Computed example of a mutant assay.
Amino acid sequence: MGLFDDLKGKAQGLIRGNEQAIKNGISKAGDFVDTKTGGKYSGHVDKIQNGASKLVDKNGTPGQAPAAGQVPPVPPVNPVPPTDRTP
């Protein structure tokens, strides 16, 4: 889990202090998609904008506990089998 934790820490470090600028970018990107699609997918775009903004709020605040729905680490696909210990 070291690499994932390292990347997560770096992402949180980039988010902290820049929350409003990131949220403004999310809003502008959603508005751009709406203009290019003629508002056809505005409901979907709004959901994504809200989710992304909540993610920025959650990860930009230091000292928060992990989310309740966070996925646990996955064990290796091909673990090394135990050695046979029969006499």
Rank of each mutant, 00 (worst) to 15 (best):
N50D: 14
P76Q: 10
T86W: 01
P72R: 07
K23H: 02
A68I: 07
V77S: 10
G2E: 14
G25F: 01
V56I: 15
D5S: 13
Q49E: 14
T61S: 12
K47S: 13
V33K: 09
A67L: 12
G60D: 03
A11L: 15
L3C: 04
G39I: 00
G2A: 15
Q20L: 10
N78D: 15
K40P: 00
P75R: 05
K10C: 09
Q70D: 10
D57A: 08
D34W: 01
R16E: 13
A29M: 04
V77T: 15
G43Q: 05
P76Y: 07
R85Y: 00
G38E: 02
R85S: 08
G13Y: 07
V33L: 15
K47T: 13
G17D: 06
L55Q: 00
G60F: 03
K36Q: 15
P82N: 09
K40R: 13
A29C: 10
T37K: 07
P62W: 06
R85I: 01
V45S: 07
D31R: 07
A21L: 09
D57Q: 07
K23M: 10
K36T: 10
L14Y: 14
Q12G: 04
A68Q: 14
L3M: 08
P87I: 00
V74P: 05
Q70V: 10
T35Y: 02
T86C: 02
K28F: 08
Q49S: 12
V80G: 01
T35D: 04
A29R: 02
G69M: 03
N50F: 03
G9S: 13
I48V: 15
V33Q: 07
K58Y: 15
D34H: 02
M1G: 12
V56H: 08
G9Y: 01
G69W: 01
A67G: 15
S27D: 12
D57V: 05
T35F: 02
Q70T: 11
P75V: 02
M1A: 12
A11H: 08
V33A: 14
G13C: 05
G13T: 11
E19T: 07
G69S: 11
T83Q: 11
K8E: 11
P66D: 12
Q64E: 14
V80I: 12
G13Q: 13
D84V: 04
A21H: 04
P87Q: 05
K8S: 11
K47C: 03
G9C: 01
R85W: 01
V77C: 05
A21I: 03
K54T: 09
T35K: 09
P82E: 09
V56F: 08
G60C: 06
T61Y: 04
H44Y: 14
L55I: 04
A68H: 08
A29H: 00
K23Q: 13
H44G: 12
K58I: 04
L55K: 00
I48M: 14
D57R: 08
L14W: 13
T86S: 15
I15L: 03
I22L: 15
K40V: 04
N18G: 05
Y41L: 13
L55P: 00
K10H: 12
G9V: 00
K36D: 03
K23P: 00
M1V: 05
N59A: 13
I48S: 06
T37P: 01
D84H: 03
Q49C: 08
Q64G: 10
K8C: 06
D46M: 02
Q64I: 01
V74F: 10
P79Q: 11
K54H: 09
P73E: 09
